[in-house]
Structure formats: structure tokens, C-alpha cells
Design a protein around this nucleic acid. Sequence first.
DNA 1: CAGTATCCGTCTGGATACTG
DNA 2: CAGTATCCAGACGGATACTG
Lengths: 118, 118
Amino acid sequence: MPDPSCPVCRTAEIVCGKWTLLIVRDLAEGRSRFCELERSLGGISPRTLSLRLRALEEEGIVHRTTFPEVPPRVEYALTEKGRALVPIIDSMRVYGSEWLGAEGSCAEAPETAEAVAA
Amino acid sequence: MPDPSCPVCRTAEIVCGKWTLLIVRDLAEGRSRFCELERSLGGISPRTLSLRLRALEEEGIVHRTTFPEVPPRVEYALTEKGRALVPIIDSMRVYGSEWLGAEGSCAEAPETAEAVAA
DNA sequence: CAGTATCCGTCTGGATACTG
DNA sequence: CAGTATCCAGACGGATACTG
């Protein structure tokens, strides 16, 4: 941790896992089940997903609800603190669309194209 | 690379190096010399700084100018593409200040405190 | 000053198999 | 379904020493 007194660094540490942002994004889009995330993230190993989810939970970004039913069911959801990450994701999407070869295929970034085209 | 068609992922890959954002931030604040960055980043090894700078240069985020003088001088600066990253850093700073124990010691996030206090 | 070279440890994350 | 356990490879990054 380079500089723990810097808010940018602290956020970077949360945000910098390989899959972290994607999980948060999927959660923000309404996915909530383990296997749903597993599928939508295409290729993540259950181990990694489990680790990320657990870390996110400990950081208070994700909330986990267990339903003690016969087919075990668990639902994940963003907390307030987790939803607060969405603006970061949005600015990353804007950047990615404007500077890294657009085609917003995972979600929209409406005004973006014309801004760069203008 | 989880999903190369996703702008968020592409940005994440650039942004997720341990020191990357900090280097960009320092550059945005006007630092430009190798040893200046080395000092301000407190504890980064020259090897790592060199690697990061080189990667950033290859991605077109940083521009490197060499002055063929007797005491070798090199200056680094953000390109347009590099400056475009600043909004991401800003939203990360806002998040860090609001949700991860504020004290904006590396730069200001003015309206932030009152927003959370209100 | 501005790096590069070498060595080495850590951490992340993938593959696979198995459990409650 | 929702994970956990084990094993393993590669990337990341620090320390140190040396060069143009």
C-alpha cells in the first residue's frame, strides 16, 4: 500500500482486483446468485469468485444473504458503499469508450461517441 | 482479460497496476522527472517505476522527452489520453474520501465532507 | 540523473476435484 | 446450488548493484 493516507490509493486497492469491478458491475445490473455471476463473468473459477465475493463482503461492499432452503440459495447484493462505486465504473466506461476503442457492448455510454466525434 | 469488449475492463487493465494511478496523478500535478516521481511515490523501486512508465508510454498515456544533455535529463508528461484519466482518479478520490476514512491528504475533495456529513 | 540487470519472494488467479 | 481444498504457473514488485 503505497500511501494509505491518499483516498485514491485506498480506493485503488479495493478496485484493482482482476475481477472486482466486473463483479460490482454485474451486481449493480441486478445479478445476485453465485452461479449467475459465474456464468456472466465467463471463465472465472469458483475459487476466485468466492475469494473476491468474500473480500468484498469484508470490505462492506457486498451483502450476502443465505436462505436455509433445501437447494441452498445465497444472494449477493451491493450495499450503499458498493453502489457508491458505480460512478467510478461509469467514468471508466466513458474512458474506455472514448480512448480504448469503443463499442460499448456491456452497457451504454450514450453521449460519449458524439463527444469524441465532435 | 475477462471481457475485452467491455470498456470498463479495458480501462481496468490500464488502471490496475499497483502504482499506475499514483504515477498518473503525480504527473497530472506537475511532476515530470524520474527521480521526482521516485521520491514522491515514496518507496517505489526504480525498476518498477521504469516498467510502469514504459508501459504507460506504450499505451500512449505518457509522453517521454529526452534532453541529450550532459547530466541526462528526461521529462515525462501526460498525453491527452493520459489527462483523460483524471476524472477517474477524481471519482476514486471522492469515493475514498466518502467511504474509506477521509483525510484528503494528497489533494482536495472540497464538497465531499459536507455531502457525507449532511 | 536516469535508468538497466539480476535475483527472488509474494500474491493472484486458473484447473480440477470434491462436499454440504 | 454454492462453495471449499489442493496444486500450480505466471505476473508483480522489492532489494541491490551496476551503467551511460
